[in-house]
């Protein structure tokens, strides 16, 4: 099949970017979306043009590195990661627009590559259970009901790609943060620190410049791992309950 590509090119963080058009012939329906970009890049290099920078690594839909905004949707028309998207999801002759994630908390580094280190800093603010290596109880010491364990797993399945932020008109990170808060709020191991955790993570989220949540649900609809909005509700519950009962109320970015 033949396709036309309209791709965002931007030299670096401080330079203004713009769309550029490319034509590709002989695209196979069995190609993955990223393989289609590999072919384009190879053509460009042969012509002496610099290749298009895009983030990718595992190409199995689990590392969360790929971050393409395709035809107005994070990861494109199928609810999966861009690396698992295949060209059979497009039509012969179609024009495909590819942009980076758009959010002020995710500045563009080059072309389609963005800086998602804000996500790491939110996790560093409290996304852990404070245990050192060694000296922990036997793994079967604390039984956890299957239902709770499964729910915690559903939340923990987040791959940290940032599609939720890219999908949201406010560039809110509530689904990402809610997923981690939920995982630890559900499990007995996370309970001792649950109040400080949610306060610190929300404060960091605000400090990074992510927007507020207005419950439109675009994040859930676009999440490649099907992380549920329930996690946002649970985070809100955790946050309000800790606000009225915690010893150490912290607020850095909210005022």
């Amino acid at each position: 099949m033949k396709i036309t590509l309209k791709i965002w090119r931007q030299k670096n963080r401080n330079t203004k970017g713009s769309f550029k058009m490319y034509a590709l012939e002989h695209v196979s329906a069995d190609m993955s979306f990223l393989e289609m970009l590999d072919v384009l890049n190879s053509d460009l290099i042969q012509k002496g043009e610099e290749s298009i920078a895009f983030d990718h690594d595992c190409r199995e839909g689990i590392c969360g590195m790929c971050s393409l905004y395709i035809n107005g949707r994070p990861h494109g028309p199928v609810q999966t990661t861009a690396c698992q998207l295949h060209m059979r999801s497009f039509k012969d002759g179609q024009t495909i627009t590819i942009e980076p994630w758009r959010a002020s908390a995710f500045p563009v580094i080059k072309d389609l590559v963005v800086d998602r280190s804000a996500f790491d800093r939110i996790q560093q603010a409290g996304g852990y259970v404070s245990v050192n290596t060694g000296g922990v109880p036997d793994a079967n010491e604390i039984p956890i009901s299957k239902k709770i364990a499964d729910e915690a797993f559903d939340a923990a399945a987040c791959i940290g790609c940032g599609a939720c932020v890219a999908a949201c008109k406010n560039a809110s990170a509530m689904l990402f943060v809610g997923a981690k808060v939920s995982q630890f709020a559900l499990l007995p191991q996370g309970k001792p620190e649950r109040k400080e955790r949610v306060e610190k993570m929300v404060a960091q989220m605000d400090a990074e410049g992510f927007g507020a949540c207005t419950n439109t649900g675009a994040c859930e609809a676009e999440c490649p791992k099907g992380i549920s909005l329930t996690n946002i509700a649970r985070m809100n519950r955790e946050y309000f309950s800790s606000a009225i009962s915690s010893y150490e109320v912290q607020s850095k970015g909210a005022d």
Binding site: V129, G134, V136, P137, N140, S145, K146, D150, Q189
Partner: peptide, 18 residues
């Protein structure tokens, strides 16, 4: 033991054990 203490959600049986 270490991973469970960190909050890794391993698969569990209905009785709550791993």
């Amino acid at each position: 033991d270490q991973c469970v203490a960190q909050g890794v959600p391993f698969a569990r049986e209905y009785g709550g054990l791993l």
